[in-house]
């Protein structure tokens, strides 16, 4: 056995991300003939997302499931992968991952910042808004206070939509929504279900404002210490686990929706996507560190 890797994420063991992490562990063990052992640590047992990203960057033998937002702290262009209304449908993301542009930014973050991105095809799901009223267009969000994570992309997006983004810590969201500190929250359906937010707010609007992808990252030196064959095992296993996660997420949407409806939630499907997209267009101008013309480059890849 050459190496023991610890895969970490902050979600519970029932989430698709955990099942995908376990699939990744099995695949790596099998395909490396047991030369790489992989153990999964769910629910933030080793620390928060941000802390584990830093452990990876500084050289710990950890594989952390990362989102592009974190990577953009080092190579700003990664940020656009997280931008609002970027994708028409989730599957389009693969076009970006297959491009030379994506290869360029991943090589850059590996060379300059010791972060090897194995893949980013782990579909986390479209993010939806939960509130006590329907959200069909930006007009419905005027002065609505909504919980956002402490992250510039979220803050700018909801500012552009006219809402008041409150950066509550995640553990306070449940009580915050219940008591009315915030009027709304946003997350993928799986998290809306898991965190029981439907106990205090009864309307989920399918705004799909972000379609979130993530993927495993590993320290570049740890990665380079492996022979090319094992490196390939890590990359292909990560990609296959990501496809498995995408299937799980896609399949579970209907079940989650039925579960939420069973709990008394009403769904709003007739969201004016055109108006939402137009209102958030301005967000793409809020990141001066992006390479000039980045939005056009990415649009060209997607519309191709």
């Amino acid at each position: 056995q050459d190496l023991t890797l610890r895969v970490t994420h902050v979600l519970s063991t029932t989430e698709p991300m955990h099942l995908a992490s376990e699939r990744f562990a099995e695949l790596v063990k099998e395909r490396s003939d047991g030369r790489i052992a992989v153990e999964v640590f769910p629910a933030g047992q080793l620390g928060s997302n941000l802390d584990m990203y830093e452990q990876v960057r500084m050289g710990a033998p950890i594989v952390q499931i990362s989102d592009p937002g974190y990577l953009s702290d080092y190579v700003p262009d990664f940020g656009i992968l997280n931008a609002p209304y970027l994708l028409d449908e989730a599957g389009d993301f693969q076009k970006l991952l297959d491009s030379d542009w994506y290869k360029g930014i991943s090589d850059k973050i590996a060379a300059d910042h010791q972060i090897r991105v194995l893949t980013l095809n782990w579909l986390f799901g479209g993010r939806q808004i939960i509130a006590n009223k329907p959200v069909r267009s930006p007009a419905d969000l005027q002065n609505v206070s909504i919980r956002v994570p402490p992250n510039v992309m979220w803050i700018e997006t909801f500012a552009a939509l006219g809402a008041r983004g409150e950066t509550l810590a995640w553990p306070e969201v449940y009580s915050g929504l219940a008591s009315g500190v915030v009027d709304a929250a946003e997350a993928p359906l799986s998290s809306l279900w898991g965190s029981k937010l439907y106990e205090s707010a009864k309307t989920v609007s399918m705004t799909n404002h972000f379609i979130a992808y993530s993927g495993p990252i590993i320290n570049e030196s740890v990665y380079q210490s492996l022979d090319p064959e094992l490196q390939q095992v890590l990359v292909t296993s990560a990609e296959d686990a990501g496809k498995y996660m995408a299937e799980l997420v896609t399949q579970s949407q209907a079940t989650l929706r039925a579960d939420l409806e069973g709990a008394g939630v009403t769904f709003v499907d007739d969201v004016d996507m055109g108006a939402m997209r137009a209102a958030t267009e301005v967000v793409y101008t809020k990141f001066p560190d992006w390479t000039p013309g980045l939005h056009d480059t990415v649009r060209a890849l997607l519309d191709n």
Partner: peptide
């Protein structure tokens, strides 16, 4: 700020 300011103080937690 939640009640008097035009935009919430998103920096306060940090």
């Amino acid at each position: 700020a939640r009640y008097v300011a035009p935009r919430p103080a998103v920096w306060s937690g940090e």
